[in-house]
Amino acid sequence: MATDIVFYFFSLITVFAAVGVIASRNQVHSVLFLVLTFFNTAGLFVLLEAELLAALLVIVYMGAVAILFLFVVMMLDVQFEELRQGAIQHLPMGIFVGVMILAELIVILSGVHLDHHAVEVTAKVSNTLAIGQVMFTKYLLPFEIASLILLVALIGAVVLTLRKRTGVKRQNISKQLARTRDEAVELVKVTSGEGAKP
């Protein structure tokens, strides 16, 4: 009973926060709503006794991803109001499709008995240990492929954004260290009242 109350508490806030992400006018508020969504989802994970996933969600998604989002939103001057101009005219169609899919899913999932044997929870082993044991044994191959995907994301980000610009003043340490006194310092005799000439 108590867990039920906690479950509905977390899931209600999750749903409302998720709506807030797309509905709020200020994009910084959107990101903050996103953080709220993540946090409540983490709460749901704790209810499932998946404490590692909950911790990862808080650390990685709230601590890193959402903060990065916040940075990007604040640094890029994206006019979200302009982007939203066309949204109103597509709204009826969007709501229609969304409601249809929701109704279908409710019909389908209401009569379904989901297989509770899907996850074997071994009580004696902690969550972290259990995930670690399958991640580097049974799921070694997916783990390696995922690392390649991250590499591609890295390369892609560099390829699409790095520009070699000419005429930019950059610090070149070896060049600085190689300078000698002769080429760096010039002694000028200044006559009084005339100022230094370049």
């Binding site: 997916p142 492929i145 995922a146 390649l148 995907i149 591609v152 390369i155 892609g156 390829v159």
Partner: peptide
């Protein structure tokens, strides 16, 4: 990887690896 996948997880990861690379290639002339 997709052609050899015997599991949905592998299939999905293969698909993402392929798609992500091609998204970048499509925008290559930046």
């Amino acid at each position: 990887i997709m052609a050899s996948a015997g599991d949905f997880i592998i299939l999905y990861l293969g698909l993402e690896l392929m798609s992500l690379s091609i998204y970048v290639l499509a925008a290559f002339r930046r």
